[in-house]
Design a protein around this nucleic acid. Structure first.
Lengths: 120, 120
DNA sequence: CTCATAATTCAATTATCGTTGAAATATGGA
DNA sequence: TCCATATTTCAACGATAATTGAATTATGAG
């Protein structure tokens, strides 16, 4: 991932409402949520939310699909994983201070339930 | 970590120069680098860099120590780990789409050399 | 076709951020 | 003490970002 891209993605997440939207969508999973539903859940004006969703979308962090009159937004999980990997990449110059606690916590089940199952 | 704190930390990283500074400091490891040394390496004016280091410092991402006339900056690895864990936390609502690739890549050695060694 | 719902786009305002030049503080050496 | 180096602080300017109200586009129902 290019530095420029990473900056755009970090900036997209670096705002209270947008981080809240993103977290909500992660919880919603692949099914996603309609824009109006998100607006009601977080008490954000529809037009304000639209601008924020557009920014998240341009950053590649969420995708949009239409279902009747509703626009359903869902997380681009691959982009998010790539961003996390990019941030962890830096710690690989002989210093494992950053990623070791992350890997430990994940392995311990602090993150997903038994992520080890996915390992070969 | 509180949402507010996470936003401040993401915002600190969401700027080209600051992300570059942070990456440089991660590569420098616990020894860190002097402010002037960073300024020369990234071709940033000393006063501009100072403002950016101050922001990174206020976000808790770097620490400062004095060595003679130089101020040495180094990464707060614990803060960075905590931020990554916070971002991964969201994917634990029954969806492992985000953290599984991260854990896999780390285990594969894409991140630190053999981070598994640190696991109990 | 007409109407209501869902969401976006546009223009304008306000607030915040990044950069710059000049001045100030801190440290070490002569 | 005086000077040079290292870095920060301050004030100001220009650029960028967030929010709001009004108008617009898109879809589905009757």
């Amino acid at each position: 991932m290019e530095s420029e891209t990473a900056v755009r993605r970090l900036a997209a997440l670096a705002q209270p409402s947008r981080l809240a939207v993103f977290r909500l969508l992660v919880k919603a999973g692949p099914d996603g949520m309609a824009a109006g539903e998100i607006a009601r859940a977080l008490d954000i004006a529809p037009n304000t939310l639209s601008a924020q969703l557009n920014l998240l979308s341009q950053a590649g962090l969420v995708r949009q699909r239409r279902d009747g009159r509703s626009l359903i937004y869902s997380v681009e999980f691959e982009t998010m994983s790539a961003l996390l990997l990019y941030l962890m990449e830096d710690c690989c110059q002989g210093h494992s201070e950053i990623c070791t606690p992350v890997v430990e916590a994940a392995a311990r089940g602090a993150c997903c339930p038994t992520p080890q199952e996915s390992l070969s």
